[in-house]
């Protein structure tokens, strides 16, 4: 079929468009010369440079703290929320409300949170970033866990109750193990988003504690430096890895 060939060609170009810039960055990160245009031989020099950069390591640590904290809370709240939405309150208004943070432009959410923290006189810190990230991560976890729950056979819980396990025990022995892949996938997604999130972190971060994306932003604004290529490669690979694991847990479907 001619149209099949044409579609294949078109799609190939789209994939090239999506991946060429990323692959280019990765290749450049191993270029000893540091220049985008002159190959100075394969080297891990720029990676070694990164390890010397204390500010950068600090920012990376900050990012990990924020991502871990927001993931823990949103995994718990998001899972409960998914169960609630799936079986108690099948309610369109509630659904819309919960997924509101996914629809609102992030700049709006960012300034709202900045205003709020200022208004209640809460000093900006890693904590305020974490709190803010939980707002949208709950929605992501809930969405993934809900997909998993929709395949869940409710009579399994009834069977457990019937066999003498009270509700809480039933939750931990039957429900949770069976939706765990969804919870893990949702948590991995939440972790990744939090790790890479820039706009909201930018507005809710304290001046002395930037996260990695904030630091990258300030580096990038002042031009292209070769060590950013190495950093970018690490961050991109880490995210991709986490997402692929999440995918293995049956995760990323159920968004649209």
């Amino acid at each position: 079929m001619r149209s099949q060939t044409w579609l294949r060609f078109h799609s190939s170009l789209v994939y090239i468009f999506l991946y060429a810039p990323i692959l280019m960055l990765i290749v450049l990160s191993f270029n000893r010369s540091g220049l985008p245009t002159a190959w100075g031989g394969f080297s891990l020099y720029w990676y070694a440079e990164l390890l010397q950069n204390r500010a950068l390591l600090n920012a990376a640590l900050n990012s990990l703290l924020v991502a871990s904290g927001s993931t823990l809370v949103s995994a718990a709240f998001g899972t409960l929320l998914a169960m609630g939405l799936e079986r108690i309150a099948r309610n369109l208004v509630l659904d819309a409300f919960v997924f509101l943070p996914m629809i609102i432009p992030d700049i709006v959410l960012a300034i709202a949170l900045l205003s709020f923290f200022t208004f209640i006189e809460m000093p900006l810190s890693l904590l305020t970033i974490t709190i803010s990230h939980i707002v949208f991560n709950i929605a992501f976890v809930a969405a993934i866990v809900r997909t998993r729950l929709s395949y869940f056979d409710n009579t399994l819980e009834e069977a457990s109750l019937d066999l003498g396990a009270p509700p809480l025990k039933t939750f931990f022995k039957i429900t949770l193990p069976l939706i765990l892949p969804g919870v893990i996938a949702g948590s991995l997604l939440a972790f990744t988003i939090s790790l890479d999130e820039f706009v909201i972190a930018f507005f809710t971060a304290g001046p002395a504690q930037p996260t990695l994306p904030i630091l990258i932003y300030s580096m990038v604004r002042f031009g292209v430096t070769p060590d950013v290529n190495a950093l970018a490669t690490i961050v991109l690979s880490l995210s991709a890895l986490l997402i692929l694991i999440a995918q293995r847990f049956g995760g990323t479907e159920g968004f649209f």
Binding site: V224, S239, L244
Partner: peptide
């Protein structure tokens, strides 16, 4: 298709600067 979306948009923007 989804994979790039889950990676840092900031860095992917940087790639275009390069």
């Amino acid at each position: 298709v989804i994979l790039p979306f889950w990676t840092s948009y900031l860095i992917r923007t940087y790639a275009w600067i390069v």
